[in-house]
């Protein structure tokens, strides 16, 4: 699937996932988790080839506007309404190495906090020029960027008056299926982050702070778009010490 075969593949098993760092499955403050959380212990097993391998995607699959949510659903000559922003950063593994050819897919509400979805009932208006999804693939340094509008906050049925802080959903493929990850990015300075029951499923404050993108003034484009920087860390691989594998370590 990849059109970039010039790099030596990595074949080590992934570091064990730190389950105390991630949200547990059962988090009653987020009510939907109550009936959707496995209650029995997970079966722990070292990675096999079925988890060490994974699909890798080539840049050739991308359309020209895939990383431009301001224009990828807009009528010709028009654009989505809202605060124009660039989101950019790197995908690294736990060893700090760039993850090249990582596929990132993202989706979000429009500037008013409304999703383009049949089941969405929030009274904020649909933006006819905003679809709400995009994707990109990291370069050799693990770097990615995309353009969008800043999503609005929105209310949701959980508590009587629960609101989601402004956020962008991210889905990430690394190189092994065990690295598969879905997460959400938040924006620096938003007081609603600390009121959100979904954010609060994560037990460690440092893990939450890792989801908050700082305003990146240096990369802001004057008279055009502000920039937010969001780095993503995927599971790292163990070294393949003493194993007679072609890539060595």
């Amino acid at each position: 699937m990849s059109d970039r075969q010039d790099h030596k593949p990595e074949t080590g098993a992934f570091f064990q996932r730190d389950r105390d760092w991630h949200a547990p499955a059962f988090t009653p403050g987020y009510k939907t988790s109550v009936l959707r959380s496995p209650q029995k212990a997970l079966l722990s097993l070292d990675n096999t080839i079925s988890e060490i391998t994974g699909p890798v995607f080539g840049h050739s699959m991308l359309g020209e506007l895939d990383n431009d949510l301001i224009h990828n659903f807009a009528k010709p000559g028009e654009s989505a309404i809202g605060e124009r922003i660039i989101v950019h950063g790197r995908v690294l593994d736990e060893r700090g190495r760039p993850v090249r050819s990582a596929l990132l897919e993202f989706w979000q509400a429009n500037a008013g906090g409304r999703y383009r979805h049949k089941k969405e009932t929030y009274l904020a208006a649909i933006d006819p020029n905003f679809g709400g999804c995009g994707r990109t693939i990291t370069d050799d340094e693990g770097y990615y960027f995309f353009r969008t509008i800043k999503p609005g906050a929105y209310p949701w049925p959980n508590g009587v008056n629960d609101w989601r802080p402004a956020h962008i959903h991210f889905s990430i493929f690394g190189h092994g299926f065990a690295q598969r990850l879905i997460t959400q990015m938040y924006f620096e300075g938003d007081p609603m982050i600390w009121k959100c029951p979904i954010v609060a499923t994560i037990p460690d404050r440092r893990a939450i702070e890792q989801l908050i993108a700082p305003l990146d003034w240096a990369n802001t484009i004057p008279m055009d778009a502000r920039a937010y920087k969001f780095d993503i860390v995927l599971r790292g691989r163990r070294s393949t010490f003493f194993e007679n594998r072609p890539e060595g370590n």
Binding site: S33, D93, G96, E120, H169, S171
Partner: peptide, 21 residues
């Protein structure tokens, strides 16, 4: 000097918008 894996968050009710538009 290892980094911590980015914490997972729920895919939410509108995962189909992002992954199967």
């Amino acid at each position: 000097g290892y980094l911590k894996e980015t914490a997972s968050q729920t895919a939410g009710p509108y995962v189909h918008i992002g992954l199967t538009p």
